[in-house]
Design a protein around this nucleic acid. Structure first.
Lengths: 143, 143
DNA sequence: TCTTAAATATGATTTTTATCATGTTTTAAC
DNA sequence: GTTAAAACATGATAAAAATCATATTTAAGA
């Protein structure tokens, strides 16, 4: 479903959503430690996200990463798409090219309803929604 | 979600469900061609399934693979578990050890309902159910 | 019994994914 | 301006997954 890389990316973004803001940047190294992900690897992922402007970075001393208000309006789907591309999540469970609603493969009807609910909320719910969930105590860490 | 290997395995089993029976064995090579999977690789997967008695094999000339009536009472979950092990499907979307219903990670509540529906039907519906779906025209090939 | 066609077993290779390492650029603070 | 701390860029290595190759075992049929 999600690659390890995009799991890492999502975790990092959620971490930033909760702990960073414009005046509180966080270094790659610190994020990596907090979310239990190899740091050099995470650094690379953060750079990709930053390049796509899903997260914000500041170079030099006192620099680091944070989420701007704009950043918080992205969805986790955006995060995943940057890392995994947009095919991975959209493909059929059995990776069948020709599977679709009209000619569903045997597993399609089993998974389709549930999957589309998931995909839709991953798409529609913005990053800020998730930090709110955590603040309210409806969702939990640690990552 | 599913590894390539288990997708191949599921496809092969579905193919056998539709096209094979005791008096109609099918060679690995023919299955592979029909479902568009590299043959040597599929052969290996079929051997694992056969070893676990999810499918039936007969060696020698006129040999091949088929599904016995017993085999048809296995679920696709069984197929997947043989190939991928039983952890892969059960783990949290973000692979968080500590994520569970009481302390759900931010994505848990999003995916959990849909996922359990899927898992349950993958578990409960037997192989014969799927071949029936196809016969009835509610599900389609090609694989 | 001999030949041949199939699965089976084992291991080698390739490709992809994940991880690590190192040098370059930017910028704050002195 | 010099230094140092951070992201950024690039490439090397390692691990895992997928694929390929080859020799062995089994059993049907002549």
């Amino acid at each position: 479903m999600l690659s390890n890389s995009s799991k890492y990316a999502v975790k990092a973004v959620l971490y930033l959503a909760i702990h960073s803001h414009k005046n509180k940047k966080i270094m790659a190294k610190d994020i990596a430690e907090s979310i239990n992900v190899p740091q050099a690897y995470l650094a690379k992922l953060l750079q990709e996200l930053s390049r796509e402007e899903i997260i914000t970075s500041v170079k030099g001393p006192k620099g680091g990463f944070y989420l701007s208000d704009d950043n918080r309006n992205f969805s986790l789907m955006d995060v995943v798409n940057v890392i995994d591309g947009d095919k991975r999540l959209n493909s059929c469970v059995l990776s069948l090219e020709k599977c679709n609603a009209e000619k569903p493969c045997p597993l399609h009807n089993l998974i389709s309803p549930s999957k589309s609910v998931f995909m839709e909320s991953l798409q529609k719910k913005k990053i800020k929604y998730f930090s709110k969930q955590i603040e309210e105590g409806s969702a939990f860490l640690p990552l």
